[in-house]
Each structure stands twice: as C-alpha cells, then as structure tokens.
Design a protein around this nucleic acid. Structure first.
Lengths: 258, 258
DNA sequence: AAGTGGTCTAGACCACGCC
DNA sequence: GCGTGGTCTAGACCACTTA
C-alpha cells in the first residue's frame, strides 16, 4: 500500500492539504518555486510540475513576477428560468440571497451580425449548415471583468426585418420581438455541456488555466414545436452556479406523442 | 500584431488545428514526442509542454507505451427531471434519440451508510454540520466503465427506520419511501457547479486529465418547504449532456411570499 | 528489444512586478 | 535591482506496451 508517488505528486498533494487545511487561505501566496526546490530538495522543473498540477485543478493561479496564490471562488447565480418564469419560491429566494454577490456594477456590450449557421445552431433551428442567421452577441461584465458570453441566434429569414437587428438594448427583451411575427415561445429545452474552454473563450472571458466552462444551449419553441431562437451561453465554472427549480409532475402521464 | 508565441504554444496550436481539420480523427494517434522534437527542432521537454496543453484542454490523452490519441467525446443524456416528470415533449424525444448511446450495458453499485453531515448537505437539509445523515452512495456504470456518482442524503432522524437504509435496490424508487413518513416531495431546486474533479472523484470515476465535472446538488422539498432529501451527483463532462425542459410561465406573477 | 510516454536534473535566459 | 514565474535545452533513467 505504499503508492510510491513521483516527487511532484507528493509536493502537490502536500500543498493541496495545506491549502485545504486553511494554512494558505484564499488570496494568500503559497511557497515560491525557489522555496519548494530548497525545501523538497528537487530541481526547479519538478517544483514547477507540482504547481502545474494545482493550477490545472483550478486551486491556485500563478502570475509572473508576483507568485502563486490560492484561488478565491465566489459564485454568481445563473438562472436560465429567470426570463420566462419570474415566479420563484421562498426557498429559491433563500438560495439567491445566499449565493449572489451584491455591490458590483453590471454592464454589457452588444454586437449584432448576420452569420452562417454552424452545426450546433443549424441543428437547433432546423436550418442547413451555412444558412444565414441573425446573431446578437453579448458579453456581460461585472465591475469591468467579463463574466459570461451570450450569443442569441435567429433564423435570418424570420428575424431579418425586426428590432433584433438593432444593436441597442431592446427594452422589453429581445425574446418578445419575434412575437410580432406570430412566433410565441412557450417552451424551451436546455442542454448543458461541461468542457474546457477553447482559446477564443479563454481570451473573451479572460479565463485562467484550470477553469472549465459550461456551454448552455437553450432552444425556444412555439406551441406547435417550431424553434424560435437558439441561445448559446458560455458560463465560466469559477464564477457561476447554475440554478433550476422544478415543480414535480406526479401524474404518470405517458410521453407526449401528439 | 505578431504575437510572438512561445514555441510550445505554436506547436500546440498547430496540432489543435490539424486535429480539428480532421487530419487526426477521434481515436487516432498524433505525432510522438520524438517526432515533434525532430519536426519542430525543439527539446523533448518543449514538445511535452505542447502536448500537456492539449491534454489539459481535454483534446487528447497520453498513455505510457502507447502514444497520444485524440479523444472521442460522446454524450449520454443526464436528465434531472426524469424521476419526477416522466412526461416529455416530442422535441425532447428527438433530442434524447439523437444524443443517447444505445447497446451499452448499464449497472450500478449501491452502498448505504450513516455519516456526519458535511457543510453542503447540512445547509440543504437544514441540519447542523456533524448531524447524522443516512446516505445511499451509488456508482452507475456502462459496460463496466464508471459513469457517474450519485450520493443521496436524508436526515437520519427521519429516514433511519425506513427502507432507505436497505442496500438493495428499492423497487418503486427511493424517493417515494419518505412518503410513508408523511414527507411528500413536490418541488426540487437544482444547483449545478462546474469545476475540476478532486482526487477522490478522479479515482472513483477513472477520469483522465483535462476532464471537468459538474456537481449537481438537487434538494427536494415538501409543499410546506421542508427539505426531504439532498442528492449530490458528480457528472463527468466528457460523457454527459445535462438536459432540462421548461414550460414558460408568462403571467408576470410576483415572487411567492407565502 | 524497440518504441512509447513519465519523471527528473542542472543549468540558462527572458518577462514581469515591485521597491 | 531583485525576486518572481515563464520558457527552453540536452541530456538521463524509468515504466509501460507491443511485437
């Protein structure tokens, strides 16, 4: 039962324990690479490898010239239901109050474009890859720090001549603009994928190493099952909790077929 | 605008492009460390650093003696609503059919214990940290490969003398056992956290480097807002999509206060 | 046995932040 | 300037897989 771990693993495990024990609280600086090479009698590359472990696990961040510090994770609430289901229970209120971060200034930038549908969007909107789609690209920030990305796609044939193409903020919410075309969204399907960010997402969201993201794909439908819009959200894992609330349906009804 | 990237980044970016272009399809072997040192005229450690990038982004996996291969990601559907909301729309059916993987053999192991409540569970069940809780720990597997972890917690004072403490599978679903105590779950709140796995999760789920997980905390409530159970699911990002379906509530009702 | 990736060394020089 | 982490080299030996 002596696992005989490599040196860099022993160092990493040791530091992890010391961090979790509170010896190095969030925001504090852990030993430098030089200190680790001295204390553990290893080459600097080995100490670096130990630190790389912790960085990739999202526990610490290294900054050139400054040192390596313990990460502080504080979660904002991300609630997909908020737009269409304003009613929340008392329990939900409690969670939101516990988890939300107040006193920070929200802002967002909006960018509107016509693009060719990629595979994800095309499949959700019932289009062919390459068909034109109207996109509203938003980056939401908090205190100037980018917080999440939200790209909303519409079939250009349907949305091309609506207020959706206006890069300004749409007062009553862009989800209601399509109703002028007779497309009333009554239902949505949420898909959540967990993965590491690609390089574009890293730079747009200013993500550190070891930060996974959720890709949330929300597709809205009319009562007669036609897709209205497809939203793609990129949610950095180190800054968000995703929240849902469900009312149970205890009648064992068969799956809808009509 | 010449970014002047370090060598390992150029190599990593180059390989990433070649992988995404289809030159190296999922499952195929990418150039060896030796080949990279020759082709890019760098030291082996530099080639290794390039590969480490791709590993930590979840794009490839390295195996001693075998080589480095492109990862194949195929998503199983994970649908938190399944237990209590069997009714699904035609659109949902379409998604499930598209995304699910058939022909694989599911199995699960169940382990029952009484433990002390940790901070997460205690807060959800309205207990103090250290209070006794009944736990049903499940590992779900597919073709013998562990797929996800599901630990269900109950207040021991309420569940101690029910069928929940039976390590066998509970025919009608363990969520209905608490009803014998007058605790009928009518609502649930889902919290989803995105993060890198801890070492226990890595070994229990046999996770490769660069695989993030979702921690799904589901808390069930009675009609009078008492918590009934707290489920903690660990969902590996490389094997799951999380799916929700929502029916919009367009009456702008005020938040519940009663 | 040959080839793969994993670990480790002992140096070097560079880029960044702070005093 | 000094200390921090970032990049890079040219080797070495080990562990695992395949043939």
């Amino acid at each position: 039962m002596s696992p005989d771990l490599p040196a860099y693993r022993r160092i990493a495990d040791d530091l992890r324990v010391r961090i979790q024990s509170g010896e190095f609280p969030p925001g504090s600086t852990i030993p430098t690479q030089q200190e680790l090479t001295d204390q553990y009698k290893v080459a600097r590359m080995t100490a670096r490898q130990a630190l790389a472990e912790l960085v990739n696990q999202g526990l610490v961040v290294s900054q050139q010239g400054k040192g390596t510090t313990v990460r502080d994770v504080r979660h904002m609430v991300y609630r997909p239901q908020a737009e269409f289901e304003p009613r929340i229970s008392a329990e939900m209120d409690r969670f939101m109050a516990q988890l939300s971060q107040d006193g920070r200034k929200p802002s967002q930038s909006i960018d509107v474009a016509v693009e060719s549908a990629g595979p994800i969007v095309a499949a959700r909107l019932g289009l062919d890859i390459g068909d034109p789609v109207a996109v509203r690209k938003r980056v939401r920030s908090l205190d100037g720090e980018p917080f999440n990305i939200n790209d909303t796609y519409y079939d250009f044939k349907l949305a091309g001549d609506t207020a959706i193409m206006n890069p300004a903020d749409i007062p009553q919410g862009s989800n209601f603009v399509m109703e002028s075309k007779g497309l009333v969204e009554v239902r949505a399907i949420d898909e959540i994928y967990i993965r590491m960010p690609n390089s574009e997402e890293v730079s747009r969201l200013n993500l550190g190493a070891g930060t996974p993201v959720a890709m949330h794909v929300a597709t809205g439908y009319t009562a007669d099952d036609r897709p209205v819009r497809c939203d793609i959200f990129i949610i950095p894992g180190d800054r968000h909790v995703i929240l849902f609330e469900r009312i149970h349906n205890r009648q064992d009804a068969p799956a809808a077929t009509s």
